[in-house]
């Protein structure tokens, strides 16, 4: 999935600005992810080579933390809250409806058209509006399986209309 051309100079300059010691691996990964919106595989190798960490170890760290993504993210990034309040108010049916709507298999985070990517988060700090999802920066309160399908359809319609 990683066809993004990485810029070795860009990655090197990120590493140089943070530090080449191995302890800076996570901040470096964070900055590189900010740059590309995800962690391209070639970037992981370059980080390993430049910081003297084996690519297997860099890959291990990148796959360990859910904050890192090895897949390119969609144009619309959906954050589905599964914190305690959202969970008891039915966030799982909402999430399942989302996955069904976007035809996502188990573990798959991106829709095939590249339009949507989905992640679960632990709390968005809007428990009064539970269950909540956020698409890019827009908050969708008090979601239900039906409401979430409508929200997605609206975005798709808008995309087609443009």
């Amino acid at each position: 999935m990683s066809s993004t051309e990485i810029s070795i100079e860009k990655i090197d300059s990120i590493i140089d600005s943070i530090g080449t010691e191995q302890t800076y691996l996570i901040p470096v990964l964070q900055r590189v992810q900010e740059e590309y919106n995800y962690l391209p595989k070639d970037a992981l190798v370059r980080i390993g080579v430049k910081m003297g960490i084996s690519p297997a170890t860099v890959y291990g760290v990148a796959t360990f933390y859910s904050l890192f993504s090895l897949d390119p993210k969609g144009k619309y990034q959906i954050k589905c809250c599964d914190g305690t309040a959202c969970h008891v108010r039915g966030s799982m049916p909402v999430l399942n409806a989302l996955k069904a709507k976007l035809k996502l298999e188990d573990g798959q985070k991106n829709s095939a058209d590249g339009l949507f990517s989905i992640e679960t988060v632990s709390c968005l700090g809007a428990c009064g509006l539970a269950p909540v999802i956020v698409i890019n920066d827009k908050v969708y309160p008090k979601m239900t399986p039906d409401a979430v399908k409508i929200a997605i359809d609206e975005i798709i319609k808008r995309e087609k209309g443009e």
Binding site: K41, S54, A56, Y59, F64
Partner: peptide
């Protein structure tokens, strides 16, 4: 060489080469 490493987490942990 560190060809092999741990990847992923928890019940999904695997031993695998990079990438």
């Amino acid at each position: 060489l560190e060809i092999l490493g741990f990847t992923h987490r928890g019940s999904k942990t695997l031993v695998s080469p990079a990438l």
